[in-house]
Design a protein around this nucleic acid. Structure first.
Lengths: 198, 198
DNA sequence: CACGATCCGTAGCGAGCGCTATAGAATTCA
DNA sequence: TGAATTCTATAGCGCTCGCTACGGATCGTG
């Protein structure tokens, strides 16, 4: 049902503006990115922003959702496509080493770094919930391999998932602190040495 | 040379106020902790704060320095007191698992989480410089063991230092995301499995 | 064309920010 | 006791924050 639009059409591309907002939030975080920062990088005025995206918090939520489906989708892809939990996490960390440092967008991971110390608690908790949900996905995938014999019987799925998530979060901060793709790749490889032998 | 103080004496304890400022910055970060937050938790008025500590940025720098010498000294102690780099880092991660989660102060590490996304770039860089300086300390300690044969000849000191730092930073965020001391201890133990055999 | 609908830019709201001028209170020294 | 010194509290500065009222501009529809 495509309702023909009635009034004056929007003079900017909504997806482009969302992408530019993503870059701003990714680089500076939720709190530090002001609405006037956003209107400048998006090339629109404040009333246009509020009409198209709601308030700042709602815009950020849409940014996070879009990020999770694009830049942040590598983890889910690895979990879905690799045959074992070990291969999935190994691939995820390896890809993260490049994604966290490549040119064309800010360093690190938006979901990890963009709402660390936030005066709006709901925003901070929303990203925390996403991070913890991802941890549970790791844990479930690892447990499947433990139960099927792909990982040793004594393996603690929750501990191994937390370890992998901690390395990923640490890699994000190292990327923002200046680490190169090569250095992060070495971190990822070291982390996989901690995994039990298959 | 203790010069007798002349005018009206200060009506609050400077160290106590500094400690209370530390707790506030530790929990909420540099940016999110306002001067009025500080005056409330420190129990003093704004002019007293500015007279005793300078501006907000200077107060934060003093907080960070005091933190590094107290709560944050465990890493330096482990490096100084343990016989090998492996034992030092293992002890550091193990202690961090408890320090990052124990009651009586906020979770995680102030130097890791308090200035992530900061509108004052110098503050963000000051903590980044401290983190990177700590990485170099790890690296130097590891290199000593590689050169003395305590670690295998092929070991990359910089990579192993970055890995250890990444785990520490990840543990800090996991602590703030709700991980228990036991879970973080498991993360620390997993990390040490990545270290080469002595 | 006129009309309703929708979007745009200007301009500014109330609130909180970091910070400070000012004056009074409390102490030491002469 | 009086003067000099230093701290404290009130009160408010200029600024930026997130957000929006308003009027003009631009569209589809009749």
């Amino acid at each position: 049902m495509v309702t023909r639009q009635r009034g004056r059409p929007r003079s900017f591309d909504r997806l482009t503006a969302l992408e530019q907002a993503t870059m701003a939030f990714w680089e500076h975080g939720y709190e530090t990115t002001s609405v006037s920062d956003l209107t400048r990088v998006m090339g629109i005025s404040a009333p246009s922003l509020y009409a198209a995206f709601g308030d700042k918090k709602t815009l950020f939520e849409e940014v996070v959702e879009a990020y999770a489906l694009s830049y942040g989708a590598y983890g889910g892809r690895a979990l879905a496509e690799e045959a074992t939990a070990r291969e999935a996490v190994g691939r995820m960390l390896s890809e993260a080493a490049h994604l966290f440092t490549e040119a064309g967008h800010p360093r690190g991971c938006l979901m990890i770094s963009a709402a660390i110390n936030c005066s709006t608690p709901e925003v901070e908790e929303a990203l925390r919930d996403r991070r913890n949900a991802n941890l549970t996905l790791f844990e479930d995938r690892i447990r499947r391999d433990v139960e099927s014999g792909g990982l040793p019987a004594g393996t603690d799925p929750r501990a191994l998932a937390r370890f992998s998530g901690a390395v990923l979060q640490g890699m994000s901060q190292q990327a923002r602190d200046g680490a190169t793709a090569e250095e992060l790749t070495a971190v990822a490889e070291a982390a996989m040495r901690a995994w039990p032998e298959a």
